[in-house]
Amino acid sequence: MTVEITSPEELRELLGAPMPRALAKERTVLHERDREWLASSPFCLVATAGADGTCDVSPKGDPAGFVQVLDEHTIAVPERPGNRRADGYRNILDNPHVGLIFLIPGRTDTLRINGRARLVRDSPWFDRMVVNGHRPVLAVEVTVEQIFYHCAKAFLRSELWRPETWQPEVLPPRPRLIKEVEAPAESLADLERRYGPDYLKTLYA
């Protein structure tokens, strides 16, 4: 029988009270160590939700330091060429609340920032976001409302950064996945060419 949790009281009874330190670590102003973390991070996840509750989590990646610190309360994440679905961006237009997690490869702790976002189509600081000649056409500007570091347990349990545990071959390569799941009418040869060595040339095109 499935037993559902239906109230905050049930949840707290099951999980217990958070440690005081876990509550006290929340901040609203970027510390110098946060700036250093952002300058060293090449990857983050941006979570959004639409007005109707529809959720999205989008990966963002670039050379380390791609996220700009505008001041002690504000950061900006550049857009890069992608699939143009813009799910997260449309969510931000409906609901400005966002959550971001910043990773540094090999580190088992992460930096989390929650705040309010807006979409910016140009600003002088866009010039600092140019990579491989690509100047972003928009950026997500986030006003920090909550910032703290996550502990390492999830990464230690998953062994995410231990190469000896990696098994990329457990699933077919991306061209075959696309043919089987998304585009059965396309030829595998065409998909293999699209996602072959030349794919790297499209990262900023």
Rank of each mutant, 00 (worst) to 15 (best):
F155M: 11
R194N: 10
R116D: 06
P175K: 05
G133L: 05
E192I: 06
L119I: 09
D109M: 10
I178T: 08
P175V: 03
A139W: 01
S187C: 08
P173C: 13
R194A: 12
E186V: 10
W166R: 00
Y149E: 13
W125V: 10
R121F: 14
E164H: 07
V120C: 05
R174T: 15
G99W: 00
V98L: 07
E145L: 10
G115S: 02
P163A: 07
R176A: 07
E169M: 14
E164C: 09
A139F: 03
P136R: 08
R194P: 09
T110F: 01
D122P: 04
R128Q: 05
R107F: 05
Y195T: 05
I92Q: 00
F155Q: 08
R90T: 04
W161Q: 06
G99P: 02
T165R: 12
P175N: 08
L171K: 15
E180V: 10
F148H: 05
S123M: 07
R90K: 10
D190R: 14
N95Y: 12
L188S: 06
I113N: 00
E180K: 11
P163V: 02
V137P: 11
L191T: 01
G115R: 00
P184C: 06
V144W: 00
K153S: 12
A185Q: 15
Q167S: 13
R128A: 01
E192N: 07
K153V: 04
Q146A: 14
R194S: 12
D122T: 02
S187P: 00
R118T: 03
I113H: 01
R194T: 11
P105N: 04
A185P: 10
A117N: 00
E182G: 14
L119W: 07
V137M: 14
L100H: 02
V131R: 03
I92A: 00
Q167W: 11
A117T: 01
Y195I: 08
R135I: 02
E145T: 08
E159S: 14
I113A: 02
V120Y: 04
D94S: 14
Y195A: 06
I101P: 08
C151H: 04
H150I: 12
G133V: 03
Y149K: 11
V144I: 04
D94W: 10
K153P: 01
R112S: 02
H150M: 13
R157Q: 11
D190H: 13
R112D: 04
P175S: 06
S187L: 11
V98P: 01
N114G: 06
